[in-house]
Amino acid sequence: MRPFEDYNPFVHLVYFVSCSAIVMFFLQPVTVVLSLLGALSLFFVRRRLAEGRSHLYSLALFLVMALLNPLFNHNGATVLLLINHNPITLEAVVYGIFAAAMLLAVLYWFRTFSQIMSSDKLLYLFGGVSPKLALILSMALRYVPLFAKQAKRVNDTQRAMGLYREENLIDNTRAGARVFSVMVTWGLENGIVTADSMSARGYGIGKRTQYTLYRFYRTDVLLLCTTLLLLSIVVVGGALGALDMQWYPTLRLPRTDALALVTYVAYALLSFLPTILEIGERARWNCLQSRI
């Protein structure tokens, strides 16, 4: 067992794509709640309470989206109140809450995904299919901080030379344009030098190698197979109607027969799989530590 982050990037890709796809595909209260809890628990197990303010932003987003649906969607039979002769219905309110929760779940899956999927992993995944795209991507990723630093340097120099006053919108804009223009020239020339240097060292001759090597270990295969197995149970269950849900005109509760229960269990296992791995790994670490 390894922490979730150390698995092969391909396994991560399959896992996160399936998680965010099924939550978008089967919009149904039980699965949405399971997926949201899974995404949140993974995020907080990995990150604890870091980035506190960004969660407030997510919460605000959730509230706005939950409110918007009943304001614009007047389907549903149970009218709660009238605003400007437009009915606000219970069904639209409930649907709005779960649709917003679905989006929140997707948002948190993606957040953890982009934390785990660093640029070298991305290149490992797509470098084989498209070496050119991978090269452009990796160079651009390296250039962004370089350019930001250089832009600051140019800006400081210009300010020290007294080329513009502060707190003047027009001056600032023109100065920004000038700095940017300098950056374009510098960046292009710099890029050409880099390209020549690469050609001189034989870039493009022979196969491209990777900086980091990711191998497929037995645990990778195991996790991949588990993910795909659980995913297929959920998809088959969903195709057989276990996750069917009626929102309009009247709400009908989700099914609770045997097939539906099996699907829910598979869905829950899939959503909490990385959290279980993380917690298990931590427990093992603590256990081994105390024995030494």
Binding site: I136, M139, A151, F180
Partner: peptide, 21 residues
């Protein structure tokens, strides 16, 4: 050759870095 790829990478990076100005 490599030059066009690098120029594209530079333009991408400039458009991203420019968002910080």
């Amino acid at each position: 050759g490599v030059r066009r790829q690098v120029i594209i990478a530079v333009m991408v990076a400039l458009s991203v870095a420019g968002r910080f100005i």
